[in-house]
C-alpha cells in the first residue's frame, strides 16, 4: 500500500470505530459496554486526527542534528519533510480527556453496581417508566 491508500483505509477504520461506538452507546444494554462505546468514539476521533497529521513519505517531526546544523536559522528542508505536527498535539490532549471521562464513568459504574447489583441499563433505570 502506498501512502495515500494507508491514509484512506485509516480514515475508514476511524469511521468504523466511531460507528461501533455509537452502536454500543445506543443499543447495548450493559453499562460497561456503553462506556467502551464512548471510548471507541474517542479513539475513532483520535485516529482521524492522527491520520490528518500523516504525510506520505514524511519524517517524524523531531529535527535531527544533521538537519539542524545544515540550515541554521531557517529550517526549510525539515519543514518540507516533516509530518504535520499540530494534529498529534491535539490527539495527546484528547487522550487525556478520554482517560478522565473513563475514570469518572467507571467510578459511577461501581457506585451504581453497589446500589442495584446489576449493570443493565434496563434494571438501573427501572424507576423511570418508558
Amino acid at each position: 500500500m502506498n501512502g495515500s491508500e494507508v491514509q484512506f483505509w485509516s480514515f475508514v477504520t476511524a469511521a468504523l470505530l466511531m460507528i461501533i461506538g455509537i452502536y454500543a452507546i445506543i443499543f447495548m444494554d450493559n453499562i460497561i459496554k456503553k462506556i467502551i462505546g464512548v471510548m471507541l468514539i474517542g479513539d475513532g476521533v483520535n485516529l482521524v486526527l492522527i491520520t490528518e497529521g500523516f504525510k506520505p513519505g514524511g519524517i517524524v517531526p523531531i529535527i535531527s542534528e544533521k538537519l539542524y546544523n545544515q540550515s541554521p536559522g531557517i529550517f526549510q528542508e525539515f519543514a518540507d519533510q516533516a509530518s504535520y505536527s499540530l494534529p498529534f498535539a491535539l490527539v495527546l490532549t484528547n487522550i487525556v480527556i478520554g482517560a478522565s471521562t473513563l475514570a469518572v464513568l467507571l467510578g459511577i459504574t461501581i457506585k451504581l453496581y453497589q446500589h442495584y447489583n446489576s449493570l443493565s441499563v434496563h434494571e438501573i433505570f427501572k424507576e423511570e417508566k418508558i
Binding site: 452507546i25 445506543i26 441499563v121 438501573i124 433505570f125 423511570e128 417508566k129 418508558i130
Partner: peptide, 19 residues
C-alpha cells in the same frame, strides 16, 4: 410525558434520531 422521562433509552432513541 411518557416520551420525556429520565430513562436512558428514551434519551438514546431521540439522540439517534436527531443525529
Amino acid at each position: 410525558s411518557k416520551e420525556n422521562t429520565d430513562h436512558y433509552n428514551i434519551a438514546a432513541f431521540y439522540v439517534a434520531i436527531v443525529m
